[in-house]
């Protein structure tokens, strides 16, 4: 019986060790705004919650929608399993285009459930600082110029969904467009 108990305890601790801290936000505080144009202090606003976060730009027609749709699938799965205290976050690294109004429309057209999902944008220098801190790269590459002179950029960017614990420590990074939903849901359960 004692051996069985020891085995269970060891197994449990082994599971916990599968998710070491890989990074954090360095104790910095960033002023951002959400899709409702409300001021948000990041990452402070997320404290106490497990966070599933991706990095996007809404002009991205192919990879970011895949990542965002995977966030939706994770959210739906957690709701189905009645797992709470998980916050979803999408941070734009193209804040000059992705205003709160654009992000609101993006969420609406993709029928996203914003009950525990926030979109963040802000000053470009601030979003750049955040993505640099966590090793996300977003470099303008191709672009389209419209007849009226407007220009939009397409970024080469890190394709990431990131999992943080309730203390704001980053525990695991996944490839956003191809993430295995079972894997991250299992990892979230490990953090509960």
């Amino acid at each position: 019986m004692k051996r069985l108990l020891l085995f269970v305890l060891l197994s449990f601790s082994a599971c916990k060790e599968k998710l070491p801290v890989v990074d954090d936000f360095g104790g910095a505080h960033y002023n951002l705004v959400n899709q409702n144009n409300q001021q948000v202090l990041f990452p402070d606003i997320l404290k106490g919650k497990i966070v599933v976060m991706n990095y996007i730009f809404t002009n991205c027609p192919d990879i970011c929608p895949l990542s965002t749709n995977n966030m939706r699938l994770i959210q739906q799965r957690l709701k189905k399993e009645k797992i709470e205290n998980v916050q979803f976050v999408s941070l734009s690294f193209d804040p000059e285009f992705d205003t709160p109004a654009v992000l609101t429309k993006f969420a609406e057209i993709h029928s996203l459930d914003l009950s525990n999902w926030m979109f963040l944008t802000g000053n470009k220098s601030v979003t750049d600082a955040i993505i640099k801190k966590v090793g996300v790269l977003a470099v303008p590459n191709d672009s389209t110029v419209f007849k009226d002179g407007r220009k939009i950029y397409y970024y080469v960017h890190t394709d990431r969904i990131q999992l943080s614990d309730a203390d704001g420590k980053i525990r695991k990074n996944y490839k956003g467009s191809t993430i295995n939903v079972d894997e991250i849901v299992g990892d979230i359960k490990n953090l509960l």
Binding site: C60, P61, D62, I63, L137, N141, D142, T144, F146, K147, Y154, Y155, V156, H157, T158, D159, R160, N173, K175, S177
Partner: peptide, 21 residues
């Protein structure tokens, strides 16, 4: 749409993606 183009997504390095016409 105002402009219609054929594009392809491409992988750069291990975890970076881009798109080009």
């Amino acid at each position: 749409a105002e402009i219609v183009e054929v594009h392809e997504s491409f992988k750069r390095d291990n975890d970076r993606m881009g798109m080009r016409q």
